[in-house]
Design a protein around this nucleic acid. Structure first.
Lengths: 140, 140
DNA sequence: GCTTGACCTTACCACAAGGGCAAGGTCTAA
DNA sequence: TTAGACCTTGCCCTTGTGGTAAGGTCAAGC
């Protein structure tokens, strides 16, 4: 029933790298794989699903720590969706904060860039904006 | 004329930490400070300006490498504002890309979160969205 | 003069989330 | 049998900081 894949095949199937899969195993996200006699890791369908879960959660920006919690909730039949939602909303808040910070940077930087002639002249509004009290050239 | 500050005072004045200042010096962003006989670093007005420059550039998200380039341009009287603008626009593009990625995450995650009841029930739209082909409970 | 506390010094370890490389074992196909 | 593709572990690299240890220094108070 459940086909067994080596780590490279599992990586291709999940969109992760073999290195990442080993890293997740070592970090405790994944249970240790069964091995062949030669020591090769083998992955069955269930573990592939977990890899897919991790890959999708990473794409949503969850940290490995958060994913550990998500996986534990996922595996727990007695979970309450409240706990999952709390995690997701915390992460959403983090994302929104980062977006805001980036937008602040973007706004200031765009403004400076717009004021910079961008030619052969040495005067530059961007440098002037980074330098305090117009001490770009001479500080006596 | 130029007051000399110890690293702790320079840190307070610039909003950086003493640790960061040493790190910037070691990374080649800042010239090595003059020292007292006891080996304490001393900062004059000009160096304080450079610290301020770095602090502002960090707030705009420039990497230390980019700041190195910006500082070199700043110090170079023969610079062309074109070069500065190129750097800034590249950084702006990076910022905009990050914003887009975060907004993608935000959108998907918000959607999942909206569909999650967030109560005592174990069914959770977020987990269902992370798990593939609805194999949350049973995989036969 | 001595102690105390706040400061400074260097040097090393840690984080996240991997990438890269080396040295070696294994498997498959020709 | 051998080549090539795969696997194994282990260690160092990244970025930008924080922490901590072990020690030197300085100013103030007693």
């Amino acid at each position: 029933m459940s086909t067994l894949l080596t780590i490279g095949e599992a990586a291709k199937a999940s969109g992760l790298s073999a290195k990442m899969i080993r890293h997740y195993e070592q970090s405790g996200l994944l249970a240790k794989s069964p091995r062949t006699d030669a020591g090769y890791r083998l992955y069955n369908n269930q573990q592939l699903q977990q890899l897919g879960f991790i890959a999708r959660a990473r794409k949503l920006g969850f940290s490995l720590n958060e994913i550990l919690s998500l996986l534990q909730l996922w595996r727990d039949p007695a979970r309450e969706s409240r706990a999952v939602k709390r995690l997701a909303e915390q992460h959403l808040a983090d994302i929104n904060q980062k977006i805001n910070e980036l937008q602040q940077m973007q706004q200031v930087l765009q403004q400076l860039s717009d004021c910079c002639s961008g030619d052969h002249n040495s005067h530059c509004a961007i440098l002037a904006g980074l330098a305090p009290q117009s001490s770009t050239e001479h500080n006596s």
